[in-house]
Design a protein around this nucleic acid. Sequence first.
DNA 1: TAAGTCATGTAAAAAGTTACATGATTCT
DNA 2: AGAATCATGTAACTTTTTACATGACTTA
Lengths: 164, 164
Amino acid sequence: MSGYDLARHLERPIGIFWNASHSQIYPELARLEAAGMVEHEVVAQDDRPDKKVYRPTAAGLSALATWVTSELEPEKRKIELLLRMLSVWIADPGAAAAMYTREAERAEAEVAHFRILERHPERGSPDIRDPWFASTANLPYGVAIQSAVAAWCREMAAQLVTDV
Amino acid sequence: MSGYDLARHLERPIGIFWNASHSQIYPELARLEAAGMVEHEVVAQDDRPDKKVYRPTAAGLSALATWVTSELEPEKRKIELLLRMLSVWIADPGAAAAMYTREAERAEAEVAHFRILERHPERGSPDIRDPWFASTANLPYGVAIQSAVAAWCREMAAQLVTDV
DNA sequence: TAAGTCATGTAAAAAGTTACATGATTCT
DNA sequence: AGAATCATGTAACTTTTTACATGACTTA
């Protein structure tokens, strides 16, 4: 892919589990190339700007394969919804209920979107040796997590209303 | 609280939904104080170093109350588990299964920990006007999410084993 | 004609991490 | 005696975001 393509794939609604802007991607591709992990080929186009199409080298693929199953360190979470919860007691309960309802709707919309993607036949078979395996696997993750978030937000909104 | 206390509250296993190191906290408290959001009082101690105990000002509390229910912008997710999934097809299936099993165990341990905390009686009543409301609310969130993560990881591990 | 897409980059600023720095007390 | 806890900070570095910069072609 080109740097531009990578950036587009990390935009919503495609890139729901990772993000990076083009200003990070271009220098990173250059670093990876200097390290011998990727190489590029300039593809000339006449109706649009030329592009650099990158592909992994043998060394890059081998490093990738090692990384994939390497030790995962516990992620550093920043869940603003729960952080805000620490201070809801000073907020207006009506405004708080509205916020949780908004968040529930956002999560529910995301679940609906994932469910549509799940129905696409190009997704591929649930076979690990298939490069499309990820889409079979990652969508259920998104559905499960966002359903749980939606349920929690609905519950919060309900509690905030009855408390008042 | 003092900067040191804040830093400790953001360490695991207490601070599971937000993190910041002391090197971020001390300058931030100074900035907040310059902005009139907090003020501090030096508390002298003879067996240990003196400390600065911070408390919010009226302006700080009011800004906090506004922030709590303000518009939440969609979070920028970086879920390394799902990112890695894109490349599992080049990895060794056995090593991948082991990784997902490790992650499932981590998530299950976290759920068990949350369940223990849920049983603590000091947690307070589920009343929004109670400052302890957050602990009543945030623990079920953690339980729901981490249970879903654990189930997904178990499912992945199982699929990777049968595929081989 | 103005805005949007394709395509590449750099620069400046903000946010976050890791390391440096100090010093008394307390635990092993 | 050495490591850990309490307590404060700064410095260097890495990562990420936002803004600057360019330019052809396409769509409204």
